[in-house]
Design a protein around this nucleic acid. Structure first.
Length: 269
DNA sequence: ACTATGTCCTGCGAGC
DNA sequence: TGCTCGCAGGACATAG
C-alpha cells in the first residue's frame, strides 16, 4: 500500500514528467466519487492551471497549481490502498476503475485509478499534513510525542496526527529494527528505545525511497513500474519464516488495532 | 481528551 | 476444477 516511500516515489516521478505542463481539461467518473471536495470545485481549480510543482506531504501527493487571475491552489491526492496516479498517452487503454483524468497541454494525461476507492481527491488553498514529517522531525520532538501516548507504539506510529506518512509496512519494519514489541505502550519506551526507533524509522524509510518503494500487490510508480523494497522486508508478511536477526525464532503475526502486525517474539522486547 | 472499534470497497487466495 | 467466503488496510466516524 502506498506509504511515505511509495508516495515519495510517485511524487518524484510526476514532478519529473509534468512540472510546467498545463491541465487543459478534466474528466471525473460518475460513480460515488472518491472525492473530498465538490466535483465542480476540483474541475474549476484544475482546468487551465499550470502545474508549478509536485511534491509529497505525508501520504498525500500535492500538485501546486497556478491559474491566471486566481489565488494559487493545490490539487491533493491520497492514494488510499490501491490508488495509482499514472502519466499515460491518450491512446492508451483506460484501465478499469479509472476515476479521474487530467488532460495536459503536452498531449499526455494524468490518470487516477483506484479499484478499492479508498483514495481521495481534493483541492485546497494551502494543504498541510496533520502530523510531523518522520524524516524532518528532531529526535527530541519525536521522543516527546511518543512519550505522551498510551496507545500501543505500533498504533501510535500509524497515527497520522503524530507522524504523517508511516503505514503498516514501515511501522512493522521500524519496530523490528529497533527491537521493540508492537504492543508496548508508547509511553513505556525508554529514551534509548525511542532513539533506536527514531533512527530505525528514518533508515528504513530512506532505504525504501532508494528502492522505489514496496510493491506488495497494487503499488506502482507514475510510470507503472514496481518498487523493489519488498525484497528487503524483514518482518512484514514474513510470519512463519525465521527471524533474520536471531535466525531461530519464527516471525509471529498478530492483529493489533485491526492491522496485521509482524514481529519476532525473541528479539523484540 | 484520549483510545478502541467498526466501516467503507474490491480483488484475490485459501479452502472445501 | 470451480466456487464461496473472508481477509487485506488508510482514514474517518462513532463508541467507550
Amino acid at each position: 500500500m502506498p506509504e511515505l516511500p511509495e508516495v515519495e516515489t510517485v511524487a518524484r516521478g510526476l514532478a519529473a514528467r509534468v512540472t510546467g505542463d498545463v491541465i487543459e481539461s478534466v474528466w471525473l467518473g460518475d460513480k460515488p466519487q472518491p472525492l473530498k471536495s465538490p466535483a465542480e470545485e476540483i474541475v474549476s481549480a484544475l482546468e487551465r492551471s499550470r502545474i508549478a510543482a509536485v511534491r509529497r506531504a505525508g501520504k498525500h501527493i500535492v500538485f501546486d497549481l497556478e491559474q491566471n487571475g486566481s489565488e494559487p491552489r493545490q490539487w491533493v491526492v491520497h492514494l488510499g490502498m490501491t490508488g495509482r496516479l499514472l502519466v499515460s498517452r491518450p491512446e492508451a487503454e483506460v484501465a478499469k476503475h479509472t476515476h479521474a483524468i487530467a488532460r495536459l497541454k503536452s498531449g499526455r494525461e494524468i490518470r487516477f485509478v483506484d479499484p478499492r476507492r479508498f483514495g481521495r481527491l481534493a483541492v485546497s488553498p494551502a494543504f498541510a499534513a496533520a502530523g510531523a514529517e518522520p524524516l524532518d522531525i528532531s529526535l527530541e520532538d519525536f521522543a516527546t510525542k511518543f512519550h505522551k501516548s498510551k496507545a500501543p507504539i505500533k498504533s501510535a506510529l500509524l497515527n497520522q496526527k503524530l507522524l504523517s506518512g508511516v503505514g503498516n509496512i514501515y511501522a512493522d519494519e521500524a519496530l523490528f529494527r529497533a527491537r521493540v514489541r508492537p504492543r508496548r505502550r508508547a509511553c513505556t519506551l525508554t529514551r534509548v528505545e525511542l532513539r533506536r526507533l527514531y533512527v530505525a524509522l528514518q533508515k528504513v524509510l530512506n532505504e525504501a525511497i532508494t528502492a522505489g518503494g514496496t510493491t506488495v500487490s497494487d503499488y506502482v510508480g507514475s510510470d507503472g513500474s514496481e518498487g523493489m523494497f519488498q525484497f528487503a522486508l524483514r518482518a512484514y508478511q514474513r510470519h512463519g519464516e525465521r527471524c533474520l536477526r536471531c535466525r531461530k525464532t519464527k516471525i509471529k503475526r498478530i492483529v493489533l488495532g485491526g492491522r496485521g502486525t509482524h514481529y519476532c517474539p525473541c528479539c523484540q522486547k
